[in-house]
Design a protein around this nucleic acid. Structure first.
Lengths: 193, 193
DNA sequence: ATTACTGTTAGTACCTAGTCTTAATTCGTG
DNA sequence: CACGAATTAAGACTAGGTACTAACAGTAAT
């Protein structure tokens, strides 16, 4: 059975939140319904059309909320950010990111995107990465667009915040990492500078 | 006198750079020429249409060309290398490596140094990082010299080569990582889609 | 004076990714 | 099978363009 209307609308919302640059046509294809249905759904959910969505990304509803990182220091382009909850960034793989021999993106760029997103999502003036475990699921090629999604999982026993980041190219996971973030202002201790 | 073509095009470029959301209609009004003239000008200057401009603001050709941090040069200088055994590199922490707020080196630079050393130490035309577990032991400050030492530990069950990297500043460990390296010439793996 | 050329303006057809409206069709369930 | 909800379809219109053709004015060269 195809998704119920409720379920579809729920997924629709998520999909658009994740990839705001998607057209109705592509959404219709994905959900196996007509374009009109997608448009009805958008209307019911009051989700604006593509161009308006792009505009609102461009007009920085997000960028004023970044605390730990000046936005220009985030690797990749932040398209969504809710502090201490989640963040999404896009990195287009360009010639400077790849090994010249095979046009595969060098790992540290994917790491950099994920790590800086993990730093950016922390609602703190100062956040540092204490450690991380990562995995490169499949190589990323020149020209591909990597969408990194960070989600704050909560704090561990030592007061470190765990941030999971998964990066995708066309819905294929290419990178997964768990970052253990150190926040300056966790315990009462003010600590040196 | 109305502006010369040259002058108008020059102003046009500036205007669009300043306020990329402006429509041709408004530009025509401002410069007292027809909308077609503006379009010809844009064509000659290869300035894209409004929607593409908005998109590129949202997609950040903007931020990227301005900052474009040359991560390529992050890797450090290799001072010792014995293939498949060990390697050492040095990275001097410069202003472009640190957070502007506190002059602490950004994690991905230490990661990049270690990761690229792990790639370099592999005796293979092509090596990729499959995964890694890392730890940032203490923050590294602007001006410090980081010495990364990689040692090849051998292969795991899946034919991945394990490389351990430890980085030091003045004999203090600042970073430790274990990298699981994939070598192209191991099994038949062609790469699915 | 005629020709050539540049710069500007005009008009048409076409495009995308929608909108809004009305109507017809199909689905799920009683 | 009927009925309302859900879906699809069809048509007209919009913004902000592209691409192309044509026309005209003013200047320069022949």
């Amino acid at each position: 059975m195809k998704l119920s209307k409720q379920a579809r609308q729920h997924e629709l919302k998520n999909t658009i939140e994740d990839t705001p640059f998607i057209r109705d046509e592509e959404l219709a294809r994905r959900f196996g319904v007509s374009i009109q249905t997608i448009r009805l759904d958008r209307m019911e959910l009051s989700i604006p059309e593509l161009r308006e969505r792009i505009k609102s990304v461009a007009t920085q509803e997000w960028n004023e909320t970044v605390k730990a990182l000046p936005i220009e220091e985030v690797i990749g382009e932040v398209v969504d950010l809710e502090l201490d909850v989640r963040a999404i960034s896009i990195l287009d793989i360009k010639p400077e990111h790849v090994f010249s021999r095979n046009n595969i993106a060098r790992g540290h760029h994917l790491f950099a995107q994920a790590n800086s997103l993990a730093v950016a999502v922390i609602n703190e003036d100062l956040a540092l990465t204490a450690g991380s475990t990562i995995r490169f699921t499949r190589p990323v090629k020149l020209g591909e667009r990597v969408i990194a999604k960070a989600r704050v999982k909560g704090d561990d026993s030592k007061g470190r915040t765990i941030v999971d980041v998964h990066s995708y190219v066309d819905n294929d996971e290419v990178f997964a990492g768990s970052f253990e973030m150190f926040r300056e202002n966790e315990p009462k201790e003010v600590g040196e500078k």
